[in-house]
Design a binder for these strands. Sequence first.
DNA 1: CCTCTATACATCGCCCATCAAGGTATCGAG
DNA 2: CTCGATACCTTGATGGGCGATGTATAGAGG
Lengths: 110, 110
Amino acid sequence: MSLSKFFVLSVLHHRPMHGYEVVQAVEKTTNGCCSPTEGTVYPMLNEFEAGGYLSARREIVQGRERKIYTLTNKGREAFQIAVAAWLEATDCILAGKASAEALKRSQKTP
Amino acid sequence: MSLSKFFVLSVLHHRPMHGYEVVQAVEKTTNGCCSPTEGTVYPMLNEFEAGGYLSARREIVQGRERKIYTLTNKGREAFQIAVAAWLEATDCILAGKASAEALKRSQKTP
DNA sequence: CCTCTATACATCGCCCATCAAGGTATCGAG
DNA sequence: CTCGATACCTTGATGGGCGATGTATAGAGG
């Protein structure tokens, strides 16, 4: 699963949200590290809904329609699996970091 | 920088290698977590070489030609930057993990 | 009153990364 | 002498994500 999808599920894991809010929440919670656009998020949400990972309900707030997405149990399970997969990746990244630092040290103390 | 590119630089950070070896090294060091194909790696190595991130020398070992790639200083710097960027991402992933575990706990102890 | 910005949804074409598949060539094993 | 491993490379196909664009409403500011 792509990092974007991971973070979308991650923010919806905190609380139900509508699409526009998801875009901003991902941007904010990742400190701009991952900032998918609306053109990325809206199709993604539809895909998740079609797959049963999210359920959507419509609301009208101040004349503006909102589609609020909530993680289903299937969605939560998928997220758990994604967490495990990405943790493996982070281990590899941290290993890369460690070796990079090891080299730095050996260069500083010749 | 993509994870694939990151891991390619990462394995070349340990020692110089030829392309075929890079493919296997990435597969192995990431425990299959990231396994780019030759169709991904060879063009990537050429791109890195063209950009001055890698230097290549040709060798002939047992009648078979090898192109051995070595990280340049520019390549090492780029890797340091990539490490920093991906560490930010790992922080976000770990935050996602933490909240997932928090939810799990709250479900187990209602 | 009108325009501009923010909110909120959606779609479409484009690009780029990646993959699968195929092509070439050498070597050693069976 | 064929098959698998080594070693390189290229070429479609695919799919994710981006930017642009379109629609509509609310509220702010001139």
